[in-house]
Amino acid sequence: MSTPQPALDVHGLVKTFGSFRALDGLDLTVVPGEVHGFLGPNGAGKSTTIRVVLGLLRAGAGQVTLLGGDPWRDAAALHRRLAYVPGDVALWPHLTGGETIDLLARLHGGVDEQRRAELVERFELDPTKRGRSYSKGNRQKVALVAALAADVELLVLDEPTSGLDPLMEATFTECVRERREQGCAVLLSSHILAEVEHLADRVSIIRNGRTVESGTLDDLRHLTRTSVQAELAGDPPALAGVPGIHDLEVDGHRVVCEVDTPALDGLLRALTSVGVTSLVCQPPTLEELFLRHYGDAVPATPSPPGATS
């Protein structure tokens, strides 16, 4: 066997709320030992996917295999092998953070005293405060400590850093890396590309309930464009309309454009054939790809121009 059995395998997942299709044929695979970034704009369906994966929501269609089992049928048994941090952590108002962590750990089969103590210290959490008096970030820390202290094969983290300060974010990154070293699979949903670039081995970008890109960061970089600014020795070659070249601006001997990675070679040859006096190439960033998927909102049914009500 060359590839290990995936910790999570989602195929063609559909979830509807009434007539609204929140998930519409979503695919997602997370393998042990990887951090899988799960990106998508607000309302794309990240949290909904995670809830289906946890067996809290029932799938409409498609297959979901969680740690080799069916999350709807065997939820409780499978949950022993995973830990979850919700996007919006709600705590019991009268229970202290320490009590909550212990409760969740005991439901998981017991408290790992050493790990618990270490995590409480690293996240600088005051465990004696009541749930209702914690700030958003501190509520998240409570859930994070509980999840990271558990001895599990899969961590499911829904925007785990949205309330953390930069210092705590660094601590979080460190902790997740450690868990990955130990062979744990991590599903990390996020809006913050930098965090995902930092941590993730592979990413899936979803939009309107569908997976639009998936692969390693290098794969994805390949999909992005390099921006090129050149001063030429003579008149620029005819570049307009060449496939792979976008946003072309020509101003005398100056050329500015964006180029798809496969067309880069052809562009450079064309430029050097004229003679290049100066050249600035900006490497491809995921940011751009990311914003491209976030930005061009393609409505499901495009409305004719001028059809405003």
Binding site: H94, E99, D102, R106, T128, S133
Partner: peptide, 28 residues
């Protein structure tokens, strides 16, 4: 956001009764 009495800190560890759904529900 708080009552007349400020929220007092509580135990840093969960008591033995707080170990399952029954203990939690009773506590609530």
């Amino acid at each position: 956001g708080s009552g007349l009495r400020a929220a007092s800190p509580g135990p840093a560890r969960g008591g033995r009764s707080l170990s399952g759904p029954l203990g939690l529900t009773w506590r609530l």
